[in-house]
Design a protein around this nucleic acid. Structure first.
Lengths: 250, 250
DNA sequence: GTCTATATGGAGATAGAC
DNA sequence: GTCTATCTCCATATAGAC
């Protein structure tokens, strides 16, 4: 009995002190594990115990490094948002520089906005893949989608929309925002990589084939923007809607 | 002490037996409460205790009527999917009848697909609103998006895509599926009504303004489909991609 | 069909030793 | 900065009385 207990203690004893400098820090290990598990199962479906076990660290360290589980999520989202926003702003500026003094094409602007995301999800490794799958869930969450996406991505999106205005002269502001909204939905559903399109197409298309997505998303979205901004006749709008709108605007 | 206990028991005693025929059944009360709470907070964030309390019924009745919490979710999703699928198939058939012997226009097909959803979310009451917000989360869930959307909506989506083929003659099958994917993302993000576009636009657009969405979604999506299916030159595709694709297809 | 009562396990968070 | 140990509360699910 005693020797068993001693063995067990000896086996379960782990080295104290900070981890070797070669590996990731505890903080990063927790962030990595949380990112992966939140993305796979959803924030509420994962416990901090599961996260710390996957990270190979003690449960209490989430409290020490982040305070609460919610703060851990915030830090997961923030970590890569910074890198992403910097790269996208740089790409947008480059596109503007390249086209100056004209406006860049619609396609060039959309590419600057979407390519950094699809490219990192595709080739940035498992961490980036998980991050974007998590973004898909957050964006579509009634509970926190509005606040969190605004918090982490607003400056970039505002810059993107500002760049679109000269590319779509005369476009109604509301058409611009709604067009962006459709882009956002199409993009984030792509990140989720649910396998839905694989089922639907009998294997002809694959959720994970992000190169196919990017190649198609730019012309699809650009055509959508143009269709909304260029429409002059409202032939496809039902008469009832026209009457209602006329009444609202008096 | 004794009189207190008796009072408490007397106050907490509820009428036995089935509820009056005028109101909703217990089963429906649970489904309604679950639908609303799942939509607002997410499946894993809501306990069956919270659901049954909101429904005004006993905790154990979830087990009696549905078995498990997961089965409760399945029943929530299934309940309205049936109604929805029937209406959408009927609308699609009507559009085809109306245009015969020609194919309906792209716009007419997309309208048959999206209008029943946006209209019910807009004017169907709180239950429908919650249902669609839940669909937005499920569709974007890495965990269950692929399986569940396939399970509840595949026949309608397959019929929709079949109707699109003659409206887009010569369109590559993959372009068709990816175009549908973009539509799905744009549509379900709309259902989430996160308030994101309200923030972004400074109040100019409102997430809840589904009439504005529908009016714009049809031309936006139609233009996207056409842009993908019509593209002959691949000028916007980087040379590296063309080389890779050529190599894959040998 | 509905209720009481409970089995069984896990959750988030933290105090305090090291 | 990390670990042990524990507090407090809540989760899903079900057995059995009515």
């Amino acid at each position: 009995m005693i020797s068993n207990a001693v063995q067990k203690t000896a086996r379960s004893r782990k080295p104290r002190g900070p981890r070797p400098a070669g590996g990731r820090s505890t903080r990063e290990r927790i962030l990595d594990a949380a990112e992966k598990l939140f993305a796979r199962k959803g924030f509420h479906a994962v416990s901090v115990r599961t996260i710390t076990k996957a990270a190979g660290v003690d449960v209490a360290l989430v409290n020490y490094h982040f305070g609460t589980k919610q703060a851990l999520l915030d830090n997961v989202l923030l970590r890569r948002a910074k890198l992403l926003n910097d790269e996208r702003m740089e790409r947008l500026r480059a596109a503007i520089r390249l086209a100056a003094p004209e406006s860049p094409t619609l396609e060039a602007i959309i590419d600057a906005f979407t390519h950094p995301l699809l490219d990192r999800s595709d080739r940035g490794g498992a961490g980036w893949k998980a991050y974007f799958a998590l973004i898909a869930q957050v964006n579509n969450s009634s509970e926190m989608g509005g606040a969190m996406m605004t918090r982490y991505f607003d400056p970039v999106v505002q810059a993107f929309i500002a760049a679109l205005r000269p590319a779509l002269p005369g476009c109604d502001e509301r058409d611009l925002y709604w067009s962006y909204h459709f882009l956002s939905g199409a993009l984030t559903l792509t990140f989720a990589e649910t396998g839905r399109i694989d089922n639907l197409s009998g294997g002809l298309c694959r959720s994970s084939d992000l190169e196919s997505v990017h190649e198609r998303m730019v012309p699809y979205v650009a055509a959508g923007f143009r269709a909304l901004c260029d429409r002059r006749d409202r032939a496809s709008v039902p008469p009832a809607t026209l009457r209602r709108r006329a009444a609202q605007h008096k």
